[in-house]
């Protein structure tokens, strides 16, 4: 059996270290070793998007990376989107628009949409649908999510303007 590895990385602005086997997926490392259970395992083969986290700001599937590959990286998970106990404007927009029901896919969608808005602060409806297409939701039918993201973008543009 291969030796476990020590890895160090930054998660939600905090330095973290942990031991894992080379085969430990990043999502299992986050959930088991770091006890950050907000990131969910939905399919473990890279289709559903529930495990999406931000790797150096870009959304990636944490089930399709091994934790050893994330050594030295800067990760953001759903727990890091707002200060503990608070919600940011995107999260509040999700609540306002009822953009979640069971909430299992929600963390992966929030991270994906966070990156979209960072990259494209004024997305069209079509931009949001495209960016969202790698995240499966079985409850909402997606439209409330699209509306929440557009509403959040409008809010940010309004405040900036």
């Amino acid at each position: 059996m291969p030796e476990p590895r020590e890895i160090e990385l930054t998660i939600n602005g905090e330095r973290r270290a942990g031991r894992c086997e080379p085969r430990t997926t990043l999502v299992d490392f986050l959930r088991e070793t770091c006890a950050l259970t907000g990131t969910h395992v939905g399919c473990e083969h890279g289709v559903c998007g529930a495990c999406t986290v931000l790797l150096d700001g870009a959304p990636v599937r944490s089930c399709l990376m091994f934790a050893v590959q994330a050594a030295g990286a800067r990760l953001t998970t759903v727990e890091g989107l707002a200060p503990p106990g608070e919600m940011n404007d995107l999260q509040r927009a999700f609540q306002e628009h009822h953009a979640l029901q069971c909430g299992f896919c929600t963390p992966g969608i929030l991270t994906t949409m966070t990156a979209l808005l960072a990259d494209n602060p004024t997305p069209t409806r079509e931009d949001v649908r495209r960016a969202l297409s790698g995240n499966i939701c079985r409850c909402t039918g997606y439209e409330p999510i699209v509306q929440a993201v557009l509403d959040c973008a409008r809010g940010r543009a309004g405040r900036a303007g």
Binding site: G38, T39, T77, E79, G85, M87, Q91, F94, G103
Partner: peptide, 10 residues
């Protein structure tokens, strides 16, 4: 919603 939106759901 808050617990689902902040990763605090169980």
């Amino acid at each position: 919603d808050q617990r689902f939106l902040t990763g605090a759901a169980r």
